[in-house]
Nucleic acid binder design. Structure first.
Length: 401
RNA sequence: GGUGGGGUAGCGAAGCGGUCAAACGCAGCAGACUGUAAAUCUGCCCUCUUAGAGUUCGAUGGUUCGAAUCCAUCCCCCACCA
């Protein structure tokens, strides 16, 4: 690839990109020196389950690697151990050193499903942050004004609405910006919500005598609900470690309108192809379900292989279209004594409480051996091989033991 | 330091002495409809094997036949003015 081609390739799908000229100069310089650029990406150590939302960024990082550059993957362990003391954010509980170590390890295992290990440098920001004393921090903070901070969209909105903003929240972007200085980043990649922080890194590098990093953002993709961004705490995510069938099933429940985004950002289908498929669906030539099946299979195949993908698709049809039983049903070991149906369901893990079990029964969601049960006071004698079904997704097979 | 406003079920938010297990919205779950969904409609949504009962409304005491609602003390949160 020549430099122009590389620029096109690297900036594909980006939302913000500052700037093409800057990056071009950096690429030219690096090329003449026979080295790659340093691409920074910061990760929060509190969420070790990598999901498709992260994949959007990881895909782009991989593209940089394929073009010969180095990814500097920073795990924000220093800030992670402090957390967000305001307690506003559930995802920012302070972590212990042990937790951070465990999370970091699982992070590495997962990201290398996408990234090239040989072109990745993993760094922990405690490496430099841990050495700073308070005077260093004060000096650092002197580089940024309150007005600059208030330029960040969510800060200005909250300030205007008389919502609290803690000092910690002011300090964290600064820490992130300082990370850029310490690793001498040439470009930092992040979600669109990171734009301010990424730009701050640029400012700080300038102030501290470094060539400022380029900045690139990618969209935050909405999760399964189709509205909120994918995150573990909202439970609308698809984890890359999930079993093939779960992964496929979740992808099938993505709202139709959203699947194009997934094709583009998760499955890395070229935009011309996505447009083509999209118009085929809009004209009625292709059924949306078919497209979503392709999406599901592609994503599953990437993490689990083609065979698992076909299997997941077939299983899905069996359960939801044909309403058959899945070919593997979780077993519950019970004694053969007569028991109330309610507690039976709780024991089988099909309901969290008797109340919930009762509700399910009253609503006609419960079947035993394919026969609907409507009496919540039913007494059941468990038998080997008995199938208890609750709603569309709940299955249990009784095993006497 | 001062002033004002708050803490109610997973979240948001009503309630301000009995009719409160607590309106309403969101989320969640189930049924119908589908393409699996979305949208829509219906039902459920603290716990307890039904009618019924038992624990809830920041905490602890108190006043009352009766408290989420009144009083006292305490804890926590927020904004504003300094």
């Amino acid at each position: 690839m020549n430099i122009e081609e590389q620029l096109d390739f690297l900036s594909a799908r980006a939302v913000d990109f500052f700037s093409r000229d800057d990056l071009k100069k950096k690429l030219e310089k690096a090329q003449s020196e026979g080295r790659g650029l340093r691409i920074k990406y910061g990760a929060d150590p509190s969420a070790p389950d990598i999901h498709l939302g992260h994949v959007v960024g990881l895909n782009k990082l991989r593209e940089f690697q394929d073009a010969g550059h180095t990814v500097v993957f920073i795990i924000g362990d220093f800030t992670g151990m402090i957390g967000d003391p305001s307690g506003k954010s559930q995802t920012r509980k302070p972590l212990t050193k042990e937790q951070v170590t465990v999370n970091a390890k699982s992070y590495q295992e997962q990201i290398f499903k996408i990234l090239d290990k040989d072109k990745t440098e993993i760094r922990f920001n405690s490496e430099w942050c841990g050495k700073m004393d308070f005077s260093d921090v004060i000096r650092l903070s002197a580089h940024v004004t309150v007005a600059q901070m208030l330029a960040r969209d969510d800060f200005s909105k909250r300030y205007a609405a008389n919502q609290p903003i803690s000092m910690v929240e002011f300090l964290y972007p600064l820490v992130q910006a300082y990370d850029s200085v310490m690793v001498e980043a040439d470009l930092e990649l992040g979600g669109t919500d990171q734009l301010f922080n990424l730009l701050l890194g640029r400012e700080l590098q300038k102030v501290m005598g470094q060539p400022p990093q380029c900045v690139m953002t990618l969209p935050l993709i909405e999760g399964l609900d189709g509205v909120q961004k994918m995150s573990k705490s909202l439970n609308n995510y698809v984890g890359i470690d999930e079993a093939p069938r779960d992964m496929y099933g979740k992808l099938m429940s993505v709202p139709d309108a959203l699947m194009w985004k997934y094709f583009s950002y998760v499955a890395q289908v070229p935009s011309s192809k996505v447009e083509e498929w999209k118009s085929a669906v809009e004209s009625g030539a292709t059924h949306p379900r078919e497209m979503k099946d392709i999406l599901g299979k592609r994503v599953v195949a990437r993490f689990h292989g083609a065979e698992a993908a076909e299997d997941a698709s077939a299983e899905f049809i069996r359960i939801f279209r044909n309403k058959d039983l899945p070919d593997e049903i979780p077993e519950v070991v019970l004694s053969a004594e007569e028991t109330g149906l309610l507690s039976l369901m709780v024991q089988a893990g099909l309901a969290k409480s008797n109340g919930e079990a009762r509700r399910l029964i009253k609503q006609g969601a419960v079947k035993i051996n394919d026969e609907k049960v409507s009496d919540d006071r039913a007494q059941i004698v468990p038998e080997d091989g008995m199938i208890i079904r609750s709603g569309k997704r709940g299955f249990a097979k009784v095993k006497i033991g």
